[in-house]
Amino acid sequence: MIRTWVDSYCAEWMKLRRMPVAWISGLSGVLIAGFLFFVFAFKGDMGSNVPSNPWDGFFALSITVFGMLIGPFIILVTHGVVHLEHQTSSWKSLYTLPFDRAAIFFPKSAVILTLVLSIYVVFGLSILLSGLLLGIVVPSFGFLKYVPEFSFLFNRLAHLFFAGVGMIGLQYWISFRWDNYLVPISIGFIGYLASMFTVGKSDFAFIIPYCYPVFISLGLGSGDIGRIGLEWWGALTNIEGYSFLAFLLFLATGYHQESRKEIR
């Protein structure tokens, strides 16, 4: 079974060649980091307010902004990977391969997780590069005089990624459920917009997975995690716990429906 799943995972990657989702996952991290670079470069006082190591403030602010902006990219990547099969009517071929539908459904979700993870990795590397460039362009910020705290960057991005898997699960299920292009995208974007208005203002936000990255951004970014209802559950926050739960729930629901679906 594992061999079949690995083969399926590899086949899924091959389909992404020359697809916009591959570009989105490759470039979104660079775009957000580039945007932050220009904000810092042209609004110089932001960096100069940092008392000691400028990397700390730069990372904290960048990751907060990244967490607020990452939602639409996750929606586009998840939907793009699933919609390709609707668009090409490929289900009739995929579901007549001599193995269980699980070997299509789960490796595809793993590809999406990998793509989204790559956004975070690319962003992490791009933000490091941005800091170095800022050090050259605006030497007064002092980026070249200090060593960045990599563990902070890694930890904060890891929390954000974990908070994003719930919304990946939900969007994955929605994109399977509707073969139309606009409906799943619209639901995703409405969910993302809802996160902007509900996080920290309504308890309703805790049941919307699209809100989870924003929770982490605002909560961990502010330093007062209790202010918007975040709690530590060991090394993770409650939001990350809900996110994993949502991911598993929507994946299980999606597979349950998909394994019984008739391809007409």
Partner: peptide
Amino acid sequence: NVGALIESPALYDHL
């Protein structure tokens, strides 16, 4: 044991 072509072939046009 089966190879099938069901209605129009399902192909990835961008490849």
